[in-house]
Structure formats: structure tokens, C-alpha cells
Design a protein around this nucleic acid. Structure first.
Lengths: 356, 356
DNA sequence: GTGAAAGCGCTAACAT
DNA sequence: ATGTTAGCGCTTTCAC
């Protein structure tokens, strides 16, 4: 591309070519101070004749003490995280909000399994003004610890409220309670639940009492609490390694082929719920006549047709935007308040009266 | 998070606390020169007692003249780009290759439609050592032009070979020819083709001669050329706005419900092909008895069961890794050669003999 | 409206 | 093995 043998011109080169001082040349580009139109033009012309394409971001960053970079730590390996529309839609909202503010997103992979080092080296040493943890995890998250040590402010999605970080979340506990109550109202009593991962270990299967006590991830814990808020004690709490259709299907196969199967399955995500619906079809159970299935997120899942999932809709893009605004506030030196966005129950075709 | 009122310590603070010079303190962290173990320990202790968490990346970057950032321009809005497993898997391979080299990925959205500005501001001004264009587009791509002006070296995926950029691609022309020949061998003569977008306009529908002449995107052009290499002239060339199932379905509905429908449809991606298969089922056509459908990419699509797509498998993760290595070479000052990775025809259940 | 000077925090020659 | 020195390229007071 550019001729690497010849040094790129600097602002000083441009200034001397235009016969002005560096500080004036700087003003010509930044517009951050008074400058005569003629001078400005002269500088810009000198720049273009030298092939100078604008101030070197590295110099600017050091001088300003800001990188313009927001590190986004996704909750999993990218490959897996991006299979989840929930993560992608939030990221899209976030990037869209950040772009006009001249802030870029640095992608940082979260730990996919416990065998890997818990913290990506980028977390330790990459330049970033703020970090966003797409999946808040636990309060003693090693990533959060590393950021604290570096003095990098953090915004958590769905995390535990903490004095030194900003948390953006939704009313998932209330949402889960609503959808569960909807099932109870339909007469369901034997209700199983399929959850998001408990921790980095990402086990798959029914969780026993000990496992339930060790539940580390806040989002999973809150959604489970929402179910219990209605007085319902799930017949089975089925833990999954990731919010993906295949894990929902595995859960569905196990739960629905057991001897005293539940009449309803509440899932902590729509992808998991879709998997359960597919499993039910596979087994030959009718939804919702034989079994009701509910999800969480409010994704658009046309391929589930003719079924439309009963779910709790959360404002995904808005969540990303809210995070973006929080980031902007932090960079402006403010301390944004924690936010809880509302959710709304959306009744589809996958829930109905409990079988007699 | 960190106490913003008190200035963060610098290497100079640590050095003086440890009673050594800054350069020695630097060595203690970088290990880039000889240093007595005792001195090193002393520096590290001073650092930890001051709450110094390592050299400020901004200073290091300016000094080194490198940011450690690789800008990745995705070929669309993030929301849409990440619905395509092809992009995600490549990105995953790329990030995985870059991480051990201490390089981070800066996400840059491509233009989703012509109404938006063609170049994200990050392309113009963000710090990056190399840029990767996930979808190479045209040779006069405005993004590429901006990068050239800045002197940022670029790696293109599936782009037109050019003297000043590195292109990593696959033998898609040959692959397309192979799969088309497979259909010809099965007796098909009326073959339609469903393509990737032609350009930023992202039209949807049959392309006429004028439109075909204006085809801008290299990848689409090459795959179409592969079909023609077999001597087959498609009955219809159907253009789509993006490689997504819904656009394949739309194409399928139109093509398969037309009066003299084709006996085979070759698609430029697996997602498009899946859409065509779904449309065929919808219309009541049997695959492959009534119509054969072939894709391209080699994705794992379990939800298409019981069908398994006939497709051309490309090494997606390896593609990402290859790009990563090219990036590393560029940073090392080398000029990597263009690469063309092999593809392999994988025959599934969606292609069969032409109906009598 | 323009220029001079200082310095952001660091690394890498070079000298000792 | 350690210290001295010189910037990397820029923005921002502060004078004029």
C-alpha cells in the first residue's frame, strides 16, 4: 500500500510547507480554535500536496489521554457468542451509538471454557477508555478485577450492582414472574425450567441442590428467582452450557421423554425455548396441547412457524444504546446511574391450557 | 472505578519509588533487555505498592509507532453481517490468530445501504496498523481508497487482486464449476442461479442484461463465472440483497412457482440455498425429486434435516487464520502473497437426477 | 489570529 | 546492568 520506505509526513511537515506554526496547522484540522479561512485553506492544500491525511491518531491519543476505544468483552468465544441474536443485536445498538461519538469498539473474546486463561491479554493491556462486559457474570469476575486494577471504568450488562461500575439490565426477574404466572393461570402445576449457564463451567443437565447453591451468574439467578416469585417450584431446573437451539433441544428431549413430564417448560431464552419446541415436535408432542413452552428475549423466529413463541420481550437495541450513552457519560467524566429497562410479556401460540 | 481525582502513576513514578531510572523500570516490565533479578523485583514491588498496573499503552503505541489494532471492516451492518455464519466463523478464526500476537480487532461496520455514508469515520481516523475488509467488494471501494490515502495496508477477503493489497480468497470459480457440472451430469439443463449481492445497492430479483453488466462485487462475479464455465447459461440469475435465508426463500418462491421452472437451482451461499429448499417444501415440491438445490460454503445446517445440502465446502476458520498470518507479516514489514484456498464439493441429499 | 513552548508516557540508542 | 538522552506526533495553554 503506502510506500513504506519514505516516512509519512507529520503535522510539522505540513506546517512548515504551509509556512505556519504547528499549533496553527493543528487548528486547521481540529477546528478547535480561531483560524483565518485563508490560513486554513493554505494548510489543507499543503497537506494534500504532501499526501498528509490528517493527524496521526497515536499522537493525538497520547496527548489527550484518551484512546477513543471501548473494549467490549463478549461472554463467550466469538463464534458462539455471535450465534446468539441477543448479543448481536445489543452489539449493533452499541456500535451504532458509539460511532457518531467517534468511539470504536475493540472486540475481546470472553473465556469459552475453564481450560482457557480466564482473562484475554487485551483486557490487561489494550488501550481503552471504558470496557463493556456483555455478560456481567459475577461480581468477582477476573475480567472485572483486571479492569479495576488498571483503572478502566466498566459497564456491565446484566450484572450485580456494584459501587464502582455501571449496570444496565432489564427487569428479568419481573418478566420471568409474569410469564410463569401466565402458565399458572393456564392451570399448569408441573413446570420445568431451562436456564442459561450457571458459571464458566457450563454444565449441561438437571441441577441438584448443591449445584443450585453454587449458581454464580447473576442473570441466570435472577431469572430463576422470577419463576420462584410466583410460588412455583420447578420440577426440574435444567442447566445449559450456552443459549443455543441445540442445548434447548437436548433439554427438551430429556425433560419431555421422562416418565412424569412437565406440562410446561419455561426457558430463560428464546433460543433455548425454540430447541424445546423442536424437541417436542420430534417426540410427537403437540405444542401447546400436550406441552406449553415459553421463552425470554422476544426474538423474531420465523423458522419456528407456524408456532409463535410466548416470550418476554426485552428492548435489545435500546439496551445497546443505553450502554452507549453510559459509556459516553463516563468518558465525559460523569458517573451514570444504573438502568433497568422494562420488559413486556408477549403471548404467542406455544402456551395454552394445561392438559386435563 | 479508579479514583479519577488522583492521577494514575506513571513509569517515572515507579522508577523513582524503586530508586532506578525510567529505562530500567521499562526493562523490568518489557523484559526487552538485561536486568538484574533483584532490580526487577524491586521495580515490580514499587509498582504494586503504587497501584501501577503496567505501562500505559498510549505512550507505548506512540513510541513504537504501532497501535496493535487491526481494523476489521465487515461487509454490512453488524446486525446483518453477523447473521451470516460465514462472516462469524472467519472473524473467529481471525481473532484467534491475532490474539496471541497481542493484536486486537477494532470492529468497523460496512455500509448497509447506499443512503448511508459509504465510509465509517473510523476508517478515516481510527488508529490501526492494518485493515481487513471482510468482503473485498470492488477495486475502487471507497473504504479502500480512504485506507490508501492514510497509508494503512489492507487485506481483502475475496477481492480483486491489486498491487498494493493482499487478497485472501478461495477457488470459488472452480468450486462453482464443479457443483454445476455435478448437476449437468445428473441431467439438468434448466438451471437457475441465486447470487450474492451485486453491489451496495442490494437489489432483489432477476437480473437483466444491463444489471449483469454492472455487477460490481468480485465474489459474486466469480461465482457466476464458475457456473458459465461449464457451458451452462442460467435460465434466471436471481440477485439477492444479502446472504440470508429469507432472501433465498423469496428467490425460491419466485423461481419455483414460475411456469417453466428450473429443475435445479445453484446458489452462491448455503444460507440462500436453505431458503430455496424451504420455499420448495412450502410450494410442495420434493427435493431433489422435483428440483435439485445446491449451495456454497459448507455450513453445518442441522435444522434443514432431513435434508443435507449439496454444497462446496470452503475452509472458513482457515481463511480467518490465513488473514491473521497475512496481517502479522504486514506488521513485520513483509508483503504477503495473495492466497487462494482450495474448496471441495460435498454431495448431500438435495441434488438428484433431473426429472424426466 | 498566530506562534512558542511544554509535555502526554513511553522505549530504544547509546554511553557508562 | 544501569543511566542519560532523545524523541514518537500531537494538542493546548499562554503570550503576543
Amino acid at each position: 500500500m503506502a510506500d513504506l520506505s519514505t516516512q509519512r509526513p507529520t503535522l510539522a511537515d505540513v506546517a512548515s510547507a504551509a509556512g505556519v506554526s504547528v499549533s496553527t496547522a493543528s487548528l486547521a484540522f481540529s477546528g478547535a480554535g480561531p483560524i483565518a479561512a485563508a490560513t486554513r485553506t493554505r494548510v489543507l492544500e499543503a497537506a494534500s500536496s504532501l499526501g498528509y491525511s490528517g493527524p496521526n491518531p497515536l499522537g493525538r491519543q497520547l496527548r489527550r489521554g484518551r484512546s477513543g476505544i471501548v473494549g467490549v468483552v463478549v461472554g463467550d468465544s466469538l463464534k458462539r457468542a455471535f450465534r446468539d441474536p441477543v448479543a448481536v443485536q445489543m452489539l449493533d445498538g452499541l456500535v451504532g451509538t458509539l460511532a457518531p461519538l467517534d468511539l470504536g469498539v475493540l472486540l475481546i473474546a470472553g473465556p469459552s471454557d475453564p481450560s482457557e486463561p480466564p482473562v484475554d491479554p487485551l483486557v490487561e493491556s489494550a488501550a481503552m477508555d471504558v470496557a463493556v462486559l456483555l455478560w456481567g457474570g459475577t461480581s468477582d469476575d477476573p475480567v472485572l478485577t483486571a479492569l479495576r486494577r488498571r483503572g478502566v471504568p466498566a459497564v456491565l450488562l446484566e450484572g450485580t450492582p456494584q459501587p464502582d461500575v455501571t449496570v444496565v439490565g432489564i427487569d428479568d426477574r419481573g418478566g420471568m414472574a409474569q410469564v410463569t404466572r401466565h402458565l399458572v393461570d393456564l392451570g399448569h402445576r408441573r413446570i420445568a425450567t431451562v436456564t442459561l449457564p450457571f458459571d464458566r463451567d457450563r454444565a449441561e443437565g438437571p441441577a441438584d441442590a448443591a449445584r443450585l447453591r453454587s449458581l454464580a451468574w447473576e442473570i441466570t439467578r435472577r431469572r430463576l428467582a422470577g419463576v420462584r416469585d410466583t410460588g412455583v417450584e420447578p420440577t426440574v431446573v435444567w442447566e445449559t452450557p450456552a443459549s443455543l437451539v441445540e442445548h434447548g433441544a437436548a433439554a427438551g428431549r430429556a425433560l419431555l421423554s421422562a416418565p412424569d413430564r412437565p406440562t410446561a417448560v419455561v426457558c430463560q431464552s428464546d433460543l433455548l425455548a425454540s430447541g424445546v419446541v423442536l424437541a417436542a415436535r420430534e417426540i410427537g408432542l403437540r405444542v401447546p396441547e400436550d406441552v406449553s413452552v415459553a421463552g425470554f428475549d422476544g426474538l423474531d423466529l420465523p423458522w419456528l412457524a407456524p408456532d409463535v413463541l410466548t416470550t418476554v420481550e426485552q428492548p435489545l437495541a435500546r439496551k445497546g444504546e443505553t450502554v452507549g450513552h453510559a459509556v459516553a457519560q463516563i468518558i465525559a467524566g460523569e458517573r451514570p446511574a444504573d438502568t433497568e429497562l422494562p420488559v413486556v410479556l408477549r403471548i404467542g401460540t406455544t402456551t395454552g391450557p394445561a392438559p386435563a
